[in-house]
Amino acid sequence: MNRRKAANRMKPAAVAPAAAPARRDRRAALRAWREQHLYSLFSSLGRLAARPGATALTLAVLSLTLAFPLLFWLLLDNARQLGGRLDDAAAISVFLKPDLPASESEALAERLRARADVAAVAIRTPEQGLDEFRSRAGLGDALKVLHYNPLPTVLLVRPRATAANGESELVEALRREPRVDLVQYDLAWRRRLNAILALAERGAEVLAALLAAAALLVIGNTVRLDIQGRSEEIAVMQLLGADNGFVRRPFLYTGLWYGTFAGGLCVMLIGIVEWALAAPLAQLAASYDQRIEVHGLPVAGMLGVLGLGAALGWLGAWLATSRHIALGQPR
């Protein structure tokens, strides 16, 4: 008995000395803890189900709040893929002097590949170039009037992604090559694209942060109203010796449920948007020569949304309870 008292003194918020059975071992305490949590988990769920209208409205707002930045991010993710293709197109086109033997263009390509600022070099022979022209609608007939192949060999030099200075240096070096006729490289266009993509990416991050804050506020406010509505119950529990953790727990679980359900709803919402956009996106992709693969939210991403929702819900409820329940405590 004395030992138990001493233990209680060391851990003030542990268990009631009067209500605890004489011999309570650690396992029983753990079981009680688990039961309290399970109780809170399901009773808070029951409370949400008891007012379906208000719960549905809150969940709709929350899921939209979560869905907006996610959809933006998905759009960006797909656009980045597009950007990647354009990156290829932005390779430096090096037109070699006409009538240069194939072996010499091979040698030049090999020499360029050895440079540190070159990622890859592809050779497009005049024959390949002609084939490409022929495959384009309308051009095939025009080419028939030609008796010879007027196209030069073209080296497609892809610079290694380093400082922009390095690239212009490479371009200058290519221009100085005696076998080179023309170097075509639109640096400004390429930079602009990169800047736009970076801006959009940052924008997505800022939007996500703002909307996460909005989700926190929505959950926090909902839980605050819930706390106000149950102030008498909280007061009685505190009179009966409930500590803040006990009073707080059902509200934390309420937040957890809100967040998790909103995450689930958000995943469904994204699925619907993906489905609605699938056909026009496929058309857009088909209009590009290179096939673009439109991808949606992966399974890991869906789980991530659920987890994120749950975490936001818990945090929002935690903020609300730490502010309002502490104030409700008489002393």
Partner: peptide, 13 residues
């Protein structure tokens, strides 16, 4: 403050 709940649990009101 943290010890208040434990005191109250020892009192029936």
């Amino acid at each position: 403050r943290r010890g208040v709940p434990r005191v109250r649990r020892g009192i029936g009101m």
